[in-house]
Nucleic acid binder design. Structure first.
Ligand code: FES
Ligand code: FES
Lengths: 139, 139
DNA sequence: TATATACCCGACTATTTTAGTCAAGTTTAA
DNA sequence: TTAAACTTGACTAAAATAGTCGGGTATATA
């Protein structure tokens, strides 16, 4: 059970963006340098973030990205959804009657895993991008 | 972020074991049939569970497995530990000063991911095998 | 004491997922 | 006009995962 770098980078980059998005748009190049994430990889991520209305892009020279909402309104769960991070604790399909072992009913532990999934998702829904900016850590 | 089948099967099998472990040892064959998990795969899992003192094996004819402790004393976290399920939300090494991006300090989101890790582990520590037996679901 | 039942163990492989690159664009401010 | 910066899809190498195979060893019971 581990978090993908994709998600880690997405949250990292957006935290950076939120921190430096005072007036001018922030370029991916800057984020790449500050956070040590490959520029080409960031491009891939921001494409998705843009499609999901987390950020807006400003093209051309002096362009870059800005947040689409206030940092206090961006849930971490929104970010994860945008980059296709799937929280999947059950082994079966969500809206199927079939169990994870191919049987016709849900398995003996199914409810437990769903409870876990809710527990994790709650965490992501409660946390806002702003909460991350305000951590003491800075670099 | 998803749970491996290995862990799902381990918890499933142990729940089954706890449920049917009234007097005689339970054979892997029975668990395999009841839960629809490959017998050979179960052998692999129970080897680890045994090494970690979650279960005891009884060899020979009429043999099988029994729980080493009461179901109310077996934490789900113990089970996951036994089958090497790693909860890893951070991208860096735990006891290193190096960050997930190869830099010499921890990244901007490090503390957040550690908080998430604690949140998940707490869930597993609180839940006991017994809680799973008592779910309404039955098959 | 023979034997079937059931545990024990290492090695192996196919599949899937993940991380990250490459190449070739398009847009627009200066 | 041009350089900076975003856009897009395809591609690849590496790692993790799920699960099999084959050949053991131990022991209760008939
Ligand atoms: S996890 Fe849903 S049926 Fe097993
Ligand atoms: S997660 Fe630990 S440094 Fe980024």
């Amino acid at each position: 059970m581990k978090l993908s770098s994709k998600s880690r980078y997405a949250v990292m980059a957006l935290t950076d963006l939120a921190k430096f998005n005072t007036k001018d748009p922030v370029t991916l190049r800057d984020i790449s340098l500050r956070q040590g994430i490959s520029l080409v990889y960031l491009e891939q991520l921001f494409l998705k973030l843009k499609k999901n209305n987390i950020v807006k892009s400003i093209r051309g020279k002096k362009g870059g990205y800005i947040l689409n909402k206030k940092a206090s309104e961006v849930k971490i769960s929104d970010i994860l959804l945008a980059v296709d991070e799937k929280i999947k604790t059950i082994g079966c399909k969500k809206n199927s009657k079939e169990g994870c072992n191919g049987r016709s009913s849900k398995c003996i532990t199914h409810d437990f895993w769903e409870e876990l999934e809710d527990h994790i998702c709650d965490f992501f829904k409660k946390k806002k991008l702003e909460d991350l900016i305000n951590q003491t850590r800075f670099n």
